[in-house]
Amino acid sequence: MTAQGVVAQGVKRRFGAVEAVRGIDLTAVPGEVTALVGPNGAGKTTLLLVLATLLVPDAGQVTVAGFDPVTQADEVRARMGWAPDVFGLYDNLTCREYLVFCGEAMRLAAAKARTRASELLEVASLTEHADQPVHTLSRGQKQRLGLTRALVHEPEVLILDEPASGLDPRSRVDLRVLLRRLAATGTAVLVSSHLLGDLEELADRVVFVDRGATVGEHRIDQLPTNVAPRPWRLRSLDLPALLAALARTGYDHDEPTPAGVDVRLNGDEAAAALIAGLVRDGVPVVSCHPLGGQLEATYLELTT
């Protein structure tokens, strides 16, 4: 059986002197949301362009929906939806016209393209803007329209480059719900994103890339704990007392801010021990909570 979803092994791609991707391994299986995470310039967009049949990799094996994006581009395109991190929308077309055009470009029959456009406008909550020119949409609305374009032909593999950037909190929740629903119906979803908090609730698996190479691939519920000290934020009614107590016990901490004092701790046990110590010393501690999720901690550990 050919592998479905996305399988990439040892992908390399350089632009002149720049080695944008120098060995990324990644799989995205149907029914799951896979997150691609890494610093700016890590090569995420470049990899996604390879998967989206736009760039030829210099090396490596790639299959998307069971086909080779280089030699069987049309087969891949029929089964894959891609939304870039730029909007790439035409001005002077209404949202509906635009989606109908995209449907026709995907070789849907004219009638089918029209019904699909209406459905997708509903999905993107753009129905009330359906007959408004695209260039009058807000940034987030454009982003949503760009995403729905990738869905016109009901693809089995969905590749999204930073789909959530620029969306308001509610739209981000909507996006999460939409992607989970698509995954539940068997779509392989691959998203690159910098919004780690969102990913924790969205993704099933996460692939970390740094400087063009895969540096970790984990299920989101099996992230390595205690990878490194991570920041916890302490707030106290008596800041000088807190600082004095921290200095006494030799904890490393950042400059205090109005939000509190950040302390680096190795895992939950260390946090519990610190709180116990502070309370024993009579420091009026109000709160102590980890900054960022587990995903962020892992990210900070794995990438540079």
Binding site: R77, V86, Y90
Partner: peptide
């Protein structure tokens, strides 16, 4: 420049 070409190229248009 507007980023519309790539979205056209990933469709089934040759």
């Amino acid at each position: 420049e507007r980023g519309t070409l790539a979205t056209l190229q990933v469709t089934r248009l040759t």
